[in-house]
C-alpha cells in the first residue's frame, strides 16, 4: 500500500531540473508523477518513478541530495467532487496532509493522487474503510 517517493534538493539555478531528468533518462528510469515545491532559494523535486531504488542510487551517485519517503497513491473517482470525498475521509480520521499532487497519466477511469501524510497506515485504513482504493507498489511502478 505504501509507495516510495524520491525527493531531490534543487538550488534555484538554471539547468538543475534538466540535470535530474537526464540522469534518470540515462538510467532508463521512467517518471510516473512529479511535483516541485519551491521557495525563494531552493526547490524540492518529488518523484514517483518506475524503479525508486535505482533512481535513488543514480541520483546519489550524480551528487544530488536525495531522500526516499513513503507516500500513498489514491485512486480518486474522475468526477466532480471525487477528490473532495477522499479528503473528507482523511479529515474525519484526523489525518493531516503534508502535500499532494496528481499523476501525469491515468491508468484507469479514475484519477491518481499522491498523498504525503504522517500517519500512513491510519490513512490507508480510513480510505479503504470508505471504499477508496490505494494502489499497490507494483501497480504504481508499472503504470
Amino acid at each position: 500500500m505504501r509507495i516510495k517517493q524520491i525527493s531531490i534538493f534543487l538550488e534555484n539555478k538554471s539547468g538543475r531540473l534538466a540535470k535530474v531528468t537526464s540522469v534518470l533518462g540515462e538510467n532508463s528510469i521512467n517518471i510516473r508523477a512529479l511535483s516541485i515545491a519551491d521557495t525563494t532559494d531552493f526547490g524540492i523535486l518529488r518523484l514517483i518513478v518506475n524503479d525508486p531504488d535505482k533512481a535513488f542510487n543514480a541520483l546519489k551517485e550524480a551528487g544530488f541530495t536525495v531522500t526516499s519517503t513513503d507516500v500513498i497513491a489514491v485512486e480518486v473517482p474522475d468526477r466532480p467532487g471525487g477528490l473532495a470525498g477522499a479528503l473528507t475521509v482523511l479529515q474525519e480520521a484526523g489525518i493531516n496532509i503534508e502535500y499532494l499532487y496528481a499523476f501525469l497519466q491515468k491508468a484507469t477511469n479514475a484519477a491518481l493522487v499522491v498523498f504525503r501524510v504522517e500517519q500512513l497506515d491510519e490513512a490507508i485504513n480510513a480510505l479503504q474503510n470508505n471504499g477508496i482504493r490505494t494502489l499497490e507498489e507494483k501497480e504504481v511502478y508499472s503504470l
Binding site: Q5, S7, F9, A37, T39, F42, I44, R46, T65, V66, T67, T69, E98, Y99, R116
Partner: peptide, 15 residues
C-alpha cells in the same frame, strides 16, 4: 551544502 542529514521532502522542515 545541504547534506542528506539535513534534507527532507518537506519544505517546512528545511525552512
Amino acid at each position: 551544502e545541504l547534506s542528506d542529514r539535513f534534507f527532507s521532502d518537506k519544505v517546512r522542515f528545511i525552512e
